[in-house]
Design a binder for these strands. Structure first.
Lengths: 210, 210
DNA sequence: AACAGATTTAATCAATTGATTAAATCAAAT
DNA sequence: ATTTGATTTAATCAATTGATTAAATCTGTT
């Protein structure tokens, strides 16, 4: 009983072991997903024993929730910030979002697929537990986009389409990377170069759709 | 020994049991992925016993390979056919691909995420075993696309970008559907309507990029 | 040095899960 | 009706896997 609560009794000033476990868990979970991950693999990757993992985090599920929370936070944070910036123009938001996300994803390319894969099984549970209330329609970006569309007389494109195109063109290549490598015979470096090109081109394409 | 081979000794004219198992396996694998699938769940879904599943398919892995093969075939078949049609124009190919894929994916929305998720873990093994040699660069579509781009004097966009945009704008919403439902508060019917709109709009967007 | 609490480990448990076996039932042919 | 092979089931096995326990070691305090 008491033993099991020790890690809560005070904040660990060193935290190196706890951090090592979390780092290992993040890596393994991101690579394999929850179901395919063995807690022993996490322990091995962290260079510690399986019991220690459960001593620190009580269970695979609790550890996973922590990792998932941080991952969701990390992934959506820049999106929310950029979309709600009060001063920047619509064009600037598009430029910045594209540049920042591609930069971020080149460093951790497996995050989108990880999030989506896990969200498929759990659905509501995750977003509710982790407070991802990115109210898309209420962002500054959505308002600016709506105004811009109404200015143009032609066919009034729904804002959601442009949002899907922007995120899709940016994120989809990373999700499809495993397939791309096979189907288009593309190496790591080639892919990187391609995405750097896209960070300039996607904003142009999107603006031409406005 | 001999018992285990029975199903191979002649072609089952009825085949209803084998088909029931395969149908159940397809459903469960597509929904949960290989690692999260329990063979007992497949057996239950098929209305038969676990032993019977192994009697017919020897192992979870072999059953999975069969399902994966058929799924890959099904998914890439229309792509390959359309991309290699000798007579249709570039525009017609874009129109047809978009329309057919969205129609197909509205019926089985979970296929892209299934394929990509499994390809992440296995990488090369799958595409080699299943002969997915979609040589993208050698398709009629790629040739037509390249010619079209060279006609225009401006900045010579790499064909791969347009390919990524086309597939991305079409397929990405299905992959991101679990997230969309949460983040954009979108129901089943709304999503369907959205994708039907897109099947008209994506070709226009793509053509404006040419 | 000695104690107390925190950290770490080896050993083990219990549940899950893929797979097998041997027997029972069913269907068709003679 | 009997036989033969195909289909189906109940029972069980062995390996994997998440989790626990009790003991050992380490760290800082007195």
């Amino acid at each position: 009983m008491t033993t099991k609560m020790r890690q809560k009794e005070h904040i660990n000033p060193d935290a190196s072991t706890e951090e090592k476990i979390k780092a290992a868990a993040r890596a393994v979970f991101h690579e394999k997903g929850y179901a395919a991950t063995r807690t022993r693999d996490i322990a091995d990757a962290a260079g510690i024993n399986l019991a220690l993992l459960n001593y620190y985090f009580r269970s695979k599920e609790k550890l996973f929730h922590i990792i998932m929370s941080e991952t969701l936070q990390q992934f959506f944070k820049s999106l929310i910030v950029i979309f709600n910036h009060p001063d920047s123009t619509l064009e600037q938001k598009i430029d910045e979002l594209c540049a920042r996300y591609i930069d971020q994803l080149l460093r951790e390319p497996q995050i989108p697929l990880f999030i989506i894969s896990e969200l498929r099984s759990n659905g509501d549970a995750l977003t509710q537990n982790h407070r991802i209330n990115l109210r898309l329609k209420e962002t500054v970006f959505a308002r600016q986009l709506k105004e811009r569309i109404e200015q143009k007389g032609g066919t009034p494109t729904e804002p959601i389409h442009l949002f899907l195109n922007l995120i899709g063109m940016t994120v989809f290549p990373f999700i499809a990377q495993p397939v791309l490598k096979q189907v288009a015979e593309m190496g790591e470096e080639q892919f990187r170069a391609l995405m750097l090109q896209r960070s300039k081109m996607i904003p142009q394409w999107i603006k031409s759709m406005l």
